[in-house]
């Protein structure tokens, strides 16, 4: 299309800087990690080829199962709640309310702060003796709860902090989606006598489906990678009740220096995330084609 066509050469020339970085910091570690996962390697000692030994040990490692379960638990709790909260927030920020701009800022601001700040703040709110939450429920005569130290509550508390922190992200995605829906559809529905609830359930949600699916996929991947807020708020406690799989990978690698074992765990996690994404993609894709 352009005279003196050197497109093949130019295309690759322009791609080189990125490809170097991509190969060096993405493809190579991806392959290297897979190779390491077949070795027993203590960093200090030599690498010893171990075949599937790391993977076999994993399946009898109770800590691996519990950590993986805590991550799954976190995914199961946070994904639906964050989608619903994000959607409700998006309804508010796309409504005609005079408060919508304020609402958008208030809902979104927690997301821009780093996870450690948010976790420190919530760790203080949840603090057992002097924390705000226990002071408030104390006013109505409820005994203080060990939000972060009681095994029944710790995971929920971390989830609550996460809701507050990241719901604004989903709100932005969803309100961008809602804004794409033509206002004429709502207007004609109004003329036909549809009330607000009907227009939300019959118009907004069905037309927002591609965005909801995207949010769902992004959210599940993000939730599977949960680490920081748990690490800062509970350190994985009480009694390892909130230790997530990433934390276990981190500890195995950098506290016990079992690189091979840790890499094997990373791959199992990667594999699970891939399966979940593919299953979602196929099942949701099929539904929207029907």
């Amino acid at each position: 299309m352009i005279p003196g066509n050197k497109d093949n050469r130019d295309g690759w020339l322009f791609s080189i800087p990125f490809l170097l970085v991509f190969v060096l910091f993405m493809l190579y570690p991806l392959v290297y990690g897979f190779v390491i996962s077949f070795f027993k390697w203590n960093v200090l000692s030599d690498k010893v080829f171990a075949g599937f030994q790391n993977y076999i040990s994993l399946f009898s490692d109770e800590k691996f199962y519990t950590s993986l379960w805590h991550t799954v638990e976190f995914v199961l709790i946070t994904t639906p709640v964050l989608l619903v909260i994000g959607f409700l927030m998006a309804l508010i920020t796309t409504s005609k309310s005079p408060l919508k701009k304020v609402a958008e800022n208030v809902f979104f601001i927690p997301y821009i702060f780093s996870m450690t700040v948010v976790s420190t703040l919530w760790a203080w709110i949840f603090q057992k003796q002097y924390g705000l939450l226990n002071k408030v429920i104390g006013l109505v005569g409820i005994q203080p709860v060990g939000w972060l130290t009681d095994p029944n509550w710790a995971m929920w508390s971390v989830c609550i902090a996460t809701f507050w922190w990241t719901a604004g992200f989903n709100m932005i995605l969803m309100s961008a989606g809602i804004k794409q829906i033509s206002s004429e559809i709502y207007e004609s529905a109004m003329i036909d006598g549809a009330n607000y609830r009907q227009s939300v359930f019959r118009i907004t949600i069905p037309l927002l489906k591609p965005t909801i699916v995207l949010c769902l996929i992004l959210q599940i991947i993000a939730s599977f990678n949960v680490f920081g807020q748990v690490y800062v708020m509970t350190g994985g406690g009480p009694f390892g009740k909130t230790r997530t799989i990433i934390q276990y990978i981190y500890e195995t690698g950098f506290s016990y220096f079992k690189m091979g074992y840790s890499a094997a765990m990373s791959y199992i996690l990667f594999f699970i995330i891939m399966i979940v994404s593919v299953v979602q993609y196929i099942s949701l894709g099929r539904k929207s084609n029907e």
Binding site: Y28, P29, L30, Y32, I36, G253, S266, M274
Partner: peptide, 23 residues
């Protein structure tokens, strides 16, 4: 090439921490 790059988006960074550290 484009699809290879976009597929890179699917790789969670956390999975790479051990090999990246060693690298």
């Amino acid at each position: 090439l484009f699809w290879a790059v976009m597929a890179g988006m699917m790789v969670p960074f956390q999975v790479l921490i051990i090999p990246l550290y060693l690298q």
